[in-house]
Structures are given as structure tokens and as C-alpha cells.
Nucleic acid binder design. Structure first.
Lengths: 349, 349
DNA sequence: CCTATTGATGATAGCGATAACATCACAGGT
DNA sequence: ACCTGTGATGTTATCGCTATCATCAATAGG
């Protein structure tokens, strides 16, 4: 309950929210001056600024940015679309984006697709309606219409988490296939020969498919059998599904020496299930994941996995975006940025 | 590369994005009719609608919603502020919100505070600048200015994940203290007597503090010692910190029978650390968490915890919001909604 | 056949801010 | 004293859309 002496009621439930004009009138200046006072680096005298600040506080005024952006033709939005908000790899990327946007005056508009390109298309349109100044996507697989909208939007587009063959604009990512190949090679060098793979069904999860592709390629190159592939559950596959999948795998190919999983989550599920069945990891079976989630470093035994710079992907994507937006001053940033990945060998292999 | 015959270039890189007037001209109607054609439930003849749709496709037009909302005084935004986007409990809530918003034409504007009320205040202001039609917060602890802004915003405010003593407007949550009390009682009934608690330092994480409060209260009521409290690390505490904390606990109070943790994540870290040290859970020490994360159901041994309806909190909050926004038609929804929680007894206790 | 109702469309006037230009006062340099 | 530059402020004209009212035709009811 604020108490005010003026005509309007002061309990915060004023019929209409105050506008910049209300502030201007109260401070005895023009609206333009208020606008200036609210923007850094504008010339407003100290005394005036104080009167305006006071008026703003008295009225409880909050700038209306949608009105402002219509006029200034800058919305201050950056859109980002990730497959899932619940997957800590992608939420790390979202964090990286937000953090890199901090202080730029740009705000993140976040959406998630549930790994569906159709949903992605809807989201692209919904975001584009808000006129973001740039857009960050996960992966390079889009519907034709989605892609067309992106191309025509006239804003920088950054595809991440992948290295599309035919990128729309800019890219910050890595080859999921190559990463998995590296993991296979590393483990093969340790003497493992009978590899199994656990992943989700079908191609909805493009990164998952690419990892499986890398698995097969690497084994073929090494002359090892590459057919022990379990596809289980709709991506993203859960811990529980990882547990079930490893059971299937052990039934079909009981002599499997090492199970590679599409992500640490399914790998963890598999690991726990093996322990539940009294198997020793890595002695009876080795297990490795992908993503280097928190859990991989903490579980027992600690999990071998591929570390991916999720946060860095987000940061770099946002950086590239802001450079391009404010850009022109400095050089245009590189179109393609390859991010690092590395095998983290731990106790599970 | 679209090919067009008109003056403008057709490769999607037209200097200026087309506006509704461009569409109108091309379709031979007024802008108003285009606007109607883009809105469901407006009277536009089939033939006209088709011509407009075609013009839109040819031009690659996308509605500018910021302009629209200025005019219609409805932004179509709902703001939500959560402590962390990386915590699956809260991202579940965010999912619940998004899902409940689906089809309402409302879009989520998501921000996270990193458990800082100062950051929350900044976020509240940033979001309010976008004129959301409602706002969903986590917890009932805000800065005075943050609270004032919320009260004056003139939009429905929903506080979640908690039951504030003095709510701003509406609430969807549960008592974190009561939930922890229930857990203590349940375990005490099984015969445990020497309880320890692992949580983060200080009050930044209000829900964490309340859980600890419930722990102490319940034990006092039962006449059991309530001083075995380890505060370790800045909230939210990680798996790794949980592991370290349980070590401290065992050093100080080696005969602790059961360790309750502020969340499943720290509980999991503790569980793994105990196994690493060759302790049997629950025989040598029992462990329980809070939140019923995916990991609790999947680890070995499976973890006893408190299940909280994270997704439902989000869903119900968003539902309450949309009801209030479109509202008036039906009854105003209840101000306070208590959500369920329950003890899930598993193998770790 | 006349009025009432509904559907389809257009014209006009903002929504609340800011860009761009216009003033005016004043400080310095000469 | 004169010119110039700059800081402080105001005025005007949009930004791209939609609310609202107005118009006119077609349909329905009696």
C-alpha cells in the first residue's frame, strides 16, 4: 500500500499503467527527455535526471520496451531454440548464451522443440514474429519452410551442436560422428574388441544418429564387428531406458565387452543396472557415455565419456551473434567455429 | 532462391522486411483485412483469405507481433523466473508452464536468477519492460523493490514452489518444511534415531533453509538430536559437494544412521561417495534426498526421496494465470493452491 | 417488400516509445 | 564582440499493427 497524495489511487492498482508522458508531465519535461534519461550516454542535466528519477519512482513507471522497439527498430531479443530444456547439456548451452548476452541489453527468448523439426518450425515462426535480432538453433536439420523463414529473416542465424554440410549462415559446433569415432578408437587402443552401442530409435535425434554413424564407421575401419546396436525408445532416451537397453544387449550379445551409449544419462542407467545384476564395471563390462554430464564425474565407478563444451557452444554462439549484430565495426566473425571435444577416460572402461 | 517478377529482389535478402501493407497491396485488400486473415475467428471470405495467404507466401511475410501488441495492448507474453535452468526440478516446472501455455497464444519469457534475489529484481524489471500479461516466480522471497514492482504491475503474479506467509497475489506451491518433517517422521518410524542433514550454506536458497528448518523441527518434536547439520557450499549444492559433505559428516559424527540431503543431487553424490569408501547403503548408512529427480529412481540402490510435482506446479501456475488473464468469464481461481508431495521409500533407507 | 441481422471490408486514429531535426543558451577561441 | 561548437531540451513524425466505427451487400424473418 503506497500512500500518495495525488488524484490517482496509490495502492498499485491504478487503472492504467503510467506512460512516459505521465512521467514527463510530473517531472515538468518532455517525453523525449525522459526517454533520454532512461538511456545511458545521453545528455541530460543532473538536476533534470533527478526530477525524472523521482517522478518514475513516485509513479512506479516501467519503460515499455515493445513500444520502444517499434520506434527504434531494435527489439533487444535474441531467440534460441534447443531440443530440450531438461537436458543439462542444452541448458548449459542456454546458460552460456544468457551469460554472454549479459550486459549487451539483449534478452533471450528460449524455446524447446522436444526433438521435433515440426515443432521447431512452429517455434521459428513464433520467434520471428517477435523480430529477434538474431537466432541460435540446435543442429542443422530443419523443415524446408523453417529454413526458408530463417534465410529470409534478414538476421544472423547460428546453428550449433553440429557441423551441417550446408549451413544457413554461421555455425558453432563439432562433429558428433567424429567424437564418437574418437571414443571408439581410444577404447580399441586399450584392447576392447566387442563393442555395443545403445541409442534411441530413428533419426529424430540427429546428433544421436550421427554418433551411431561414427560408432559404425570407426569399427569398420578397425575391422571390428559393428552390428551390436540397440535402438531403444524415443530419443532422448532416459536413464531407465538405458538400463533396459543394456539388458537387451546382454541377452543378445552376452560377450559384449564395452557398451557405448548415446548419452551419459543412458550410460548411467546401464551402469546402475549392471551393478544391480551383480556385474562388475569395467571388469565384466565396460560402459562409456557421451556429454560429460555432472553425473559422469560423480557416479561410482566414474564414467568414461566425451566431454563437450556445452556452455562454450552457447557462449561462442552468442558472442558471434552480438559481434554480427553490433558488428561492422570489427571484422565479421568466422562463419564456422569448431568447438572442442575430448575423451575423458575414467573408471568405467 | 525464390524467383519473383516484381521490382524487389527475390532471394530473401530484400533490404527491408515486408510489412502488412506490402501484403495488402499485393493481395489487393486493405491492411486491416490482412490483419483479420491472420487472426482466427475473424470474418474474411475464403477467396480473399486465399489471395492473402498467397501474397504472404510470395513475400515471405511474418507478422510483427511487437507492433501488433502495441496496438492491441496484449503482448502475448508470460514471464517466468526460476532459480536455475540447469536444475531439472525447475526446468520441469518451466516445461509444465510451456505445455499449459500451448495453444493459448501465450509465449514464455524465461529467466533464471542463480538463486540471487538481486538478480531476481533485475529480471523482474527486465521482464516487466516487455509487458507480460502475467508473471510466475519461484519462492516468496523478493527484494522490496522487486515486490513493489510486482504489486504495481497490474498483472497476475504467481509465486510457486513455496507457501509464502504474505503472498503477493496467487500461489501454487507446498511447504518445503512440512515435506522434510514428513520425511524425518517416516524414517524415525522405521527406527532411525541419529539423523544428519546435508545442505548448502546460508539463506540464499530459501527452500533449502526451509527444508533444514523442517528437519530440525521434526527431530525436536520427536526428542531426537537435531544438531548434525552440515552446511557445505553455496546453494545449489552439487553432486560433488554432496560427496564431500558426507565425508565431513562421517568424520564428525561417525555413528550417523541416516543422512538427509537438501536435494537428490547432493544425496546422490553422498551415496556414490559412501560406496566408493566401501560402505553399504543402507546397512552402514542410509541416505535420502529431496525432489525425486530421475536419478533417484535409477541409481543403485534406488534412493528414498520426497516426490514433488514439479511439472504440475508449472502447469497449475500457468493454468491459474491464463484463467485470470482471460478470466472474468469463469470464477476467479483460488488464490492458494497446495501441491502434493509424498515420501517415496526406496532401497537407500 | 421492408426492416433487422450478419458478413465482408475499408478508413482512420491511435498504441507508447524514439529518430531526427530544430532550438536555444552558453562557453571558448580569436 | 563575433563565430562556433556542444550540451540540454523540445517538436514532429513515424514505427507496423489493430480497435473502432463506418459502409455496403446479402440474407433472413415477418
Amino acid at each position: 500500500m503506497t500512500k500518495t497524495a495525488d488524484g490517482k489511487m496509490g495502492d498499485g492498482k491504478t487503472g492504467e499503467a503510467p506512460t512516459m508522458n505521465d512521467v514527463a508531465r510530473r517531472a515538468g519535461v518532455s517525453a523525449m527527455t525522459v526517454s533520454r534519461a532512461l538511456k545511458e550516454g545521453s545528455h541530460v542535466s543532473k538536476a533534470t535526471r533527478e526530477r525524472i528519477t523521482q517522478a518514475i519512482n513516485e509513479l512506479g513507471y516501467v519503460l515499455d520496451q515493445s513500444a520502444g522497439s517499434l520506434s527504434s527498430r531494435r527489439t533487444g531479443f535474441v531467440a534460441a531454440i534447443i531440443p530440450s530444456i531438461n537436458n543439462s547439456n542444452f541448458s548449459d548451452t542456454a546458460r552460456g548464451i544468457t551469460d554472454a548476452l549479459e550486459g549487451t541489453g539483449l534478452q533471450l527468448l528460449l524455446g524447446y522443440t522436444n526433438y521435433s523439426v515440426e515443432r521447431e518450425e512452429e517455434l521459428i515462426e513464433a520467434m520471428l514474429r517477435r523480430r529477434p535480432e538474431g537466432i541460435i538453433l540446435t543442429g542443422g536439420a530443419h523443415t524446408p519452410r523453417g529454413r526458408r523463414m530463417l534465410e529470409q529473416a534478414g538476421i544472423p542465424v547460428i546453428e550449433t551442436w553440429d557441423t551441417p554440410a550446408d549451413p544457413i549462415d554461421k555455425v558453432v559446433g563439432f562433429s558428433n560422428g567424429a567424437a564418437m569415432e574418437l571414443l571408439v578408437e581410444t577404447l580399441a587402443a586399450k584392447g576392447y574388441e566387442r563393442f555395443g552401442y545403445i541409442g534411441g530409435t530413428t533419426a529424430r535425434d540427429t546428433r544421436g544418429s550421427q554418433r551411431r554413424g561414427g560408432f559404425v564407421r570407426a569399427l569398420e575401419r578397425l575391422g571390428l564387428p559393428s552390428d551390436r546396436v540397440i535402438s531403444f525408445g524415443v530419443p532422448p532416451i532416459s536413464m531407465e531406458q538405458g538400463a533396459q537397453a543394456v539388458v537387451s544387449m546382454l541377452e543378445r550379445w552376452p560377450d559384449t565387452q564395452v557398451a557405448l551409449c548415446v548419452s551419459d544419462l543412458s550410460a548411467f542407467g546401464a551402469l546402475m543396472e549392471c551393478q544391480r545384476r551383480g556385474m562388475k564395471v569395467p571388469d565384466d563390462i565396460a560402459i562409456a557415455g557421451f556429454g560429460d554430464y555432472e553425473i559422469a564425474a560423480c557416479c561410482h565407478p566414474r564414467m568414461t565419456t566425451i566431454n563437450v563444451d556445452c556452455y562454450g557452444i552457447g557462449r561462442q554462439a552468442a558472442l558471434k551473434l552480438t559481434q554480427t549484430i553490433q558488428g561492422m565495426a570489427t571484422e565479421e566473425p568466422e562463419r564456422i567455429t569448431q568447438t572442442d571435444f575430448r575423451v575423458v577416460e575414467r573408471e568405467s572402461t
